[in-house]
């Protein structure tokens, strides 16, 4: 089931949570809505589900305009961050709920409902726990029951709101892999919201990076990581270092010195240079970024070095292999191997 979000606006008492957002979700893909808090990603998810109504704009499920349809009519499977399992029903009854509340005309016979629920319980690898109550399950188990419950109604699209947010790191890693397997097996179009970029990069077919009610970039994990389209995405995805530069003679200058990088053809005046700390090469002579080592610490297999570069108040981080001889020096000159230059605007956190 494809989903098309068209020029959606959502205001909460004049606070714009979403501002003219448009998105095409392909049938069968696993897509992540990624962004910091307040970016509007959960609002967008709830709008797709029908739990909120847009202030303006439309949502299409396939060719149908679903914007005016109630949440029941949209037939979506929603998995909540806090699971929202029904406390007074056991695991099997929770899973059967969606089928039991169907109108008589579309409701399968009781035995069939039970059979399907048990099948789903097996799919989520919780067979034998059918008589337990939600309070007696661990966080990871509850999340799997919540997913089984959502799958029971054979939804057109699966929507997950920070599904692993409340779980500890080990369980999260396991469930990530497991979610991907389930998705590959069942083939549902799945949209999930997360603020954890590692999760998004690992799981999703495509990512939608959002910030302050707008979509910053849509692309595959590789595209978003290697070719970020704006400072926000560069700073939000992966690690980054940034520096103000000026463009003169088609070259980049920092603190009155050329640093040996050609300027992109359309850049002029002041801009910011973005690069990833591990994407640098040390340079003995020639034009380069030169800085004084202010701090250095070992992080796993690399050494993270903080440099003070002439004139610029903040420190710049670069990564060296931990046993590199330059790690002992007090002055280091380097050039980024891969970089982007953006005019004017500051990036995420900068």
């Amino acid at each position: 089931m494809e989903i098309r979000v068209q020029d959606i606006r959502k205001e909460f008492s004049r606070y714009p949570a979403l501002n003219d957002v448009s998105l095409d979700i392909r049938s069968g893909e696993l897509i992540a809505l990624l962004g910091p808090s307040g970016s509007g990603k959960t609002t967008l998810l709830r709008l797709i589900a029908g739990l909120e109504t847009p202030t303006a704009g439309r949502i299409f499920f396939g060719d149908e305009d679903a914007s005016s349809k109630s949440v029941q009519e949209r037939n979506v499977g929603f998995v909540f961050q806090a699971y929202a399992l029904f406390r007074n029903m056991n695991v099997l009854e929770n899973i059967m709920f969606g089928l039991k509340v169907r109108p008589r005309s579309t409701r399968p016979p009781a035995a069939e409902i039970r059979r399907r629920a048990l099948e789903l319980l097996e799919l989520v690898q919780l067979s034998g726990l059918d008589k337990r109550f939600p309070q007696q399950l661990s966080g990871g188990q509850r999340q799997r029951v919540a997913l089984a419950r959502a799958l029971a109604i054979e939804p057109r699209v699966l929507l997950l709101d920070e599904p692993f947010g409340a779980l500890d790191a080990m369980v999260r890693k396991e469930l990530r892999k497991w979610l991907r397997e389930i998705h590959d097996r069942t083939g549902h179009t799945t949209v999930f919201v997360t603020h954890d970029q590692e999760e998004a990069l690992e799981l999703a077919d495509r990512l939608v990076v959002m910030s302050q009610g707008k979509i910053e970039q849509v692309g595959t994990p590789d595209e978003v990581y290697d070719t970020p389209s704006n400072p926000f995405v560069f700073g939000f995805i992966g690690e980054s270092s940034a520096l103000p530069v000026t463009v003169e003679n088609h070259e980049l200058w920092v603190g009155g010195r050329a640093i040996g990088l050609p300027a992109p053809s359309d850049a002029t005046g002041d801009a910011r240079l973005f690069f990833r700390p591990h994407d640098v090469e040390l340079v003995e002579d020639g034009a380069a970024l030169a800085g004084v080592v202010a701090a250095s610490r070992r992080v796993g297999g690399t050494r993270r070095v903080e440099l003070e570069i002439g004139g610029y108040p903040d420190r710049i981080e670069i990564d060296l292999p931990f046993d590199h001889p330059a790690g002992e020096r007090t002055r280091i000159a380097f050039r980024p191997k891969r970089w982007r230059v953006f005019e004017g605007a500051k990036g995420y956190r900068q």
Partner: peptide
């Protein structure tokens, strides 16, 4: 949330 979960399941 419990009520939202119920209506999202079609109740």
């Amino acid at each position: 949330t419990d009520e939202e979960a119920a209506i999202s399941l079609g109740a």
